[in-house]
């Protein structure tokens, strides 16, 4: 069975981009699960690790770009937390799973497609 993927969207940006995706005839495999947070800045390192612990082999956090965040630095915060979680996984030698952050402008379907292609 394909590796399980969890994607955290930001309600204010990447959620919209996913909504748009359907108009571009993109389809997702059923190993990919989407959920959203009011701001990706609300994600904690522990939430990321818990997702891995519960069986997700890929956890993606899709926030906004640096300068257009609804909560000013929410995306940057998310990115830093992802970096910390990645560091912890490396420290404990956990290589079965990966965690990544991507920042994209709301509505940037092309970048989203590229990200989804890497899964």
């Amino acid at each position: 069975m394909a590796a399980k993927v969890l994607i955290y969207q930001c309600s204010y940006c990447s959620y919209l981009t996913f909504d748009l995706l359907s108009q571009y005839k993109v389809s997702l495999q059923d190993n990919i699960f989407l959920t959203d947070l009011p701001c990706t800045g609300t994600i904690s390192v522990n939430m990321l690790l818990e997702a891995v612990e519960n069986g997700f082999e890929k956890v993606l956090v899709l926030g906004g770009t640096g300068n257009d965040c609804r909560f000013l630095k929410g995306s940057q915060r998310a990115q830093k937390r992802v970096e910390e979680a990645v560091k912890i996984l490396r420290e404990i030698g956990y290589d079965k799973a990966s965690i990544a952050f991507y920042g994209l402008k709301p509505g940037d379907v092309d970048s989203l497609k590229n990200i989804l292609n890497t899964i």
């Binding site: 522990n46 690790l49 818990e50 891995v52 612990e53 912890i88 996984l89 404990i92 030698g93 956990y94």
Partner: peptide, 17 residues
């Protein structure tokens, strides 16, 4: 509490591996 929980998860992950 936050750091304690994060540490616990980290350790569980390690031993799970």
């Amino acid at each position: 509490e936050k750091e304690a929980e994060q540490l616990a998860t980290t350790l569980r992950l390690y031993f799970q591996k």
